[in-house]
């Protein structure tokens, strides 16, 4: 196949992602707008050809999120996605919540 066709095609289609799911927690006791702040945590895990033996990066995301908020975290959204690559991929967890302190 001619490289002048292949190269742009690879560039165009070479950075794909897949959002697997988005979980949304309950929104109980959400404080008023002026008494809340948005906290976000993101962790990822690089996987080469599927060789991966734990899912600890998920727990790390939760720890990161909690480290940013001493109070209650409500309205927590959790997104699980994967960025595809050449013989490898990156799994990503993104958590976001509303922190009410004090």
């Amino acid at each position: 196949m001619k490289i002048r066709i292949l190269l742009p095609l690879m560039l165009l289609t070479g950075c794909t992602h897949s959002v697997h799911m988005q979980h949304v927690s309950d929104f109980d006791d959400v404080p008023a707008a002026e008494k809340r702040s948005v906290v976000t945590a993101e962790t990822e895990q690089s996987v080469v050809l599927g060789f991966v033996f734990d899912t600890d990066y998920v727990d790390q995301a939760k720890q990161q999120l909690m480290a940013q908020c001493n109070g209650r975290l409500s309205a927590v959204t959790t997104q699980y996605s994967t960025s595809h690559g050449f013989l490898h991929w990156t799994n990503k967890i993104r958590m976001q919540g509303l922190c009410s302190e004090g």
């Binding site: 690879m10 289609t13 070479g14 950075c15 794909t16 992602h17 897949s18 959002v19 697997h20 799911m21 996987v47 050809l49 996605s81 994967t82 960025s83 595809h84 690559g85 050449f86 013989l87 490898h88 991929w89 990156t90 799994n91 990503k92």
Partner: peptide
């Protein structure tokens, strides 16, 4: 080969 990894539905270009 260049887009390996688990997928849900068709891949997107912005996650």
């Amino acid at each position: 080969l260049i887009n390996m990894g688990p997928r849900t539905g068709n891949p997107v270009f912005d996650d």
